[in-house]
Computed example of a mutant assay.
Amino acid sequence: MEWLSYLLILLCPLMMIFCMRGHGGHKHQHEQHFTKNMETKLKLLEEENNKLKNEMESISKIVKKGS
């Protein structure tokens, strides 16, 4: 009967290892989704930044002509 208690004690860390590995796969998928979202947002911000630069240049030209 003593061997049963040792078996249970050893089983606990083994189960923890397998459970933690199972959760690691979900983390990787979440990171990929997060990265894809960030890349999309970054592209949109870059496009908006370029539009704003063009507008500023246009306004600057208009102001210089008016001076």
Rank of each mutant, 00 (worst) to 15 (best):
E46F: 03
E47P: 04
H28L: 14
K51T: 08
H26V: 09
E55K: 13
L4M: 03
F18T: 06
G22A: 02
K41E: 15
E2L: 10
R21W: 05
L7T: 08
H26D: 08
L10C: 07
H23R: 14
M20I: 15
N37S: 09
K43Q: 05
V63W: 00
K61G: 00
M16L: 10
N50F: 01
I17P: 00
K51M: 06
K36C: 03
E48H: 10
H23D: 08
S60K: 11
M16P: 02
H23S: 12
H23K: 13
L45T: 01
M16N: 06
E31S: 04
W3N: 14
E31K: 11
M16K: 10
H26Y: 08
T40N: 05
L10T: 03
S5D: 11
L44R: 15
T35F: 03
K27V: 12
K27I: 13
H33P: 12
M38T: 12
M1Y: 08
K43D: 02
T35W: 03
E2G: 05
P13Q: 00
K51C: 02
M15E: 12
E46N: 04
M1H: 09
L14C: 04
T35M: 08
T40R: 09
I9L: 15
C12W: 15
G24C: 03
K61L: 00
L44S: 11
L44K: 14
K53C: 05
K64D: 03
E46L: 10
M1R: 08
N37P: 06
T40C: 05
L11F: 11
H26A: 12
H30D: 02
M56Q: 14
V63C: 02
I62D: 05
P13A: 00
Q29C: 02
F18G: 08
E2Q: 09
T40M: 07
N54Q: 06
E55W: 06
E57G: 05
K43A: 07
M16G: 07
E39S: 03
Q29W: 00
I62Q: 08
L11T: 10
L4P: 00
E31A: 04
P13M: 01
I59M: 12
E46W: 01
K53P: 00
S5F: 14
K41C: 12
N50M: 04
S67T: 14
I59W: 07
H23L: 13
L45I: 04
H28P: 15
M1E: 07
